[in-house]
Design a binder for these strands. Sequence first.
DNA 1: CGAAGATATCTGCTCATGCGGATAGATGTC
DNA 2: GACATCTATCCGCATGAGCAGATATCTTCG
Lengths: 113, 113
Amino acid sequence: MKNIARIFKALSDETRLRILALLSSGELCVCDLMAALELPQSTVSRHLAYLRNAGLVDDERRGVWMFYRLKQESALGNELLLLLIAKLNESNQTHRDRKALNALPDAQGRSCS
Amino acid sequence: MKNIARIFKALSDETRLRILALLSSGELCVCDLMAALELPQSTVSRHLAYLRNAGLVDDERRGVWMFYRLKQESALGNELLLLLIAKLNESNQTHRDRKALNALPDAQGRSCS
DNA sequence: CGAAGATATCTGCTCATGCGGATAGATGTC
DNA sequence: GACATCTATCCGCATGAGCAGATATCTTCG
């Protein structure tokens, strides 16, 4: 139960929910998240660390870039997580963030691609 | 989304999760919760207020007693909440708490019944 | 009305967590 | 090795939240 509380604590911040919503459709690098969420790098990194420590995301370094993705398994269970993601994807904030993400420059204009 | 974060914040404390687990099988008064959880009255009351403000529980005064129950509807959605409750009911802590609750004196020995 | 019982809220304290800029660390290229 | 880029972590600050005892508030009864 302590672990469940810990995961909910990870989920109790709007920025982190925004990150999870964006990650729900595929892995992203810190620079993409920064751009889409319009947040400073340290803020994004800190929240990603929190999510990773809670066991909700995995990271992978590719050169100078760090990519993050949702974990398939967490202590919350798949079904619960899927419902949560669905809930997040209903929100206007997620629509706005996703629009910003899709408006990012293509491969050539991006640092990580 | 702010509201979702708020609900998760309400869920991010172990004591509150314990309360929700106990309430999942029926309404309880503050004095029962105090006894089952072995926590002081002010702690229980404060957590219940937090849960009520997050829209997860309803209260009802009956004489000098306050009864609390899970809300049927919350901003999280029924299904998600049911899965969460199921998750909570798997935990050893919930088993211990429920055992303590069942060990409480019967009607005559209880103040609220 | 006063007293008793139940409980919400206040209080003071400590710890956790949010923020963003600064800095340390990692990677890649020349 | 020097330098550029990316990112994790530190730092200082402000705010939120946990705790339990004290106190205020509410209800009921004699």
